[in-house]
Design a protein around this nucleic acid. Sequence first.
DNA 1: TCTCAAAGTGTACCTTATACACATAGATAA
DNA 2: TTATCTATGTGTATAAGGTACACTTTGAGA
Lengths: 248, 248
Amino acid sequence: MISHKIVPNISVDCVIFGFDFEKLNVLLVEREMKDKKNGEILIKDHTLAGYHIFEDEDLDSAAARILKGLTGLDNIFLEQFGAFGQLDRVSSPKDKMWLDYINKGFADRVVTVGYLALIDNTKVTLTLKDRNVAWFPVSAVQEMEMAFDHRYLFHTALEALQRKVKVEPIVFELLPDYFTISQLQKVYEAVLGTSFDKRNFRKKVAQMHYVIPLRKKQQGVPHKPAQFYLFSREVYEKTRKGRISFII
Amino acid sequence: MISHKIVPNISVDCVIFGFDFEKLNVLLVEREMKDKKNGEILIKDHTLAGYHIFEDEDLDSAAARILKGLTGLDNIFLEQFGAFGQLDRVSSPKDKMWLDYINKGFADRVVTVGYLALIDNTKVTLTLKDRNVAWFPVSAVQEMEMAFDHRYLFHTALEALQRKVKVEPIVFELLPDYFTISQLQKVYEAVLGTSFDKRNFRKKVAQMHYVIPLRKKQQGVPHKPAQFYLFSREVYEKTRKGRISFII
DNA sequence: TCTCAAAGTGTACCTTATACACATAGATAA
DNA sequence: TTATCTATGTGTATAAGGTACACTTTGAGA
């Protein structure tokens, strides 16, 4: 195992979104610091999954490394949503105390690059069991204690996700390979915080030729079983319409 | 005048777009290095407007500083389009030689944050007169020698611009305060590399209530004088429709 | 007053968006 | 075996927006 030198003033933070067929969640790491003498809890809050980059890796690799370390998953949808370099972003008293405490040679001034990750919840739930890492509903984040500027990063990531979802077929990254139309509708609703008419939604899906029905249905559900579909990126690329319709 | 310490491994690069009522242009800086003895030209190419950030400024300020230094302009539209940290982005032989030559204490490994700037050409043409800085048609960049990974940054910026233009009213940043509908159409065409039907375009503009006709017309033109319009961000904010129409 | 050049205008057709209510399949329990 | 439950799955009418297409108008300058 090679040990890598970190770049003390550049980091990568991942906002990892997951969908549990009900709501949108985000993966957060618990941060806890106790007084060495009396065990009093001095810090207890949450951070995004992030770390400094290594001298011999590029930004995307750093993000992928962090994601793999946390979830065990490779080949995850991962995309930058911004770089953040406010002078005071790691310098609240609490955060300074934390940086002293862990003492890893990070700089006072750190520019971080934010990455947005989308993962299929069903693939990762188990892996996390015994770590200080957990899923939280996106709606809960606003009331949580967050380290550094991570609440802000989170919001920026969510906004980026909402923007992208309307323009690129990325919700599929949040679903398993096979999914039903209702599930697809629910992801859109969860991400955008809206709701759609079922019939109109299905009409739209019918025009997405890259959402392909399978010869497979749900089994064992106490109601009419739903048909499964899959997303074909190949068909998407071939049939995408470069519609120019600028905003009014 | 305070002298600032630079951060040796973080920089900001600005892709500055301008529009001359004909085509889209980009502002580039000429880079030249001559052999100290015989005067032979060893490097002659172009770079984006960029520099390392200072220890006491954030990313946005660094970009604004660079823009101001080059154009003399404040309050310019400026938006990140990505962070770039490939290991080899500043390490071609030519670029290494250049970094040795200017010898400013930059690191071998530099992460840069790309900023996209949009400016009204008419405001800046004069200021640049006697500098090694000039406008180049966007279409010419692919055949130009470019330093570092600046051609790639440029392309990424252009794509980001094309995406944003469809979704946000930012083309107005490329026009003077008063403009005609034809000029507006030409910016869209120049940015997107397409052309539109005049009547349909005007119908669209008629629905953009934030493009407001003035009691003012062109003068001295050898044809029917066009009416001037202005862009009102205030009206835009109030009347924008949050249309959700995800892509098929 | 004629010419030139770009500005400015309208209509018909097609595609997409929206609003809205009931029948269907399979599992479970009586 | 029949009834009940629950989420799936379907169609139509209207409004809004997109697209294709050709001629008239204004003012400057010759």
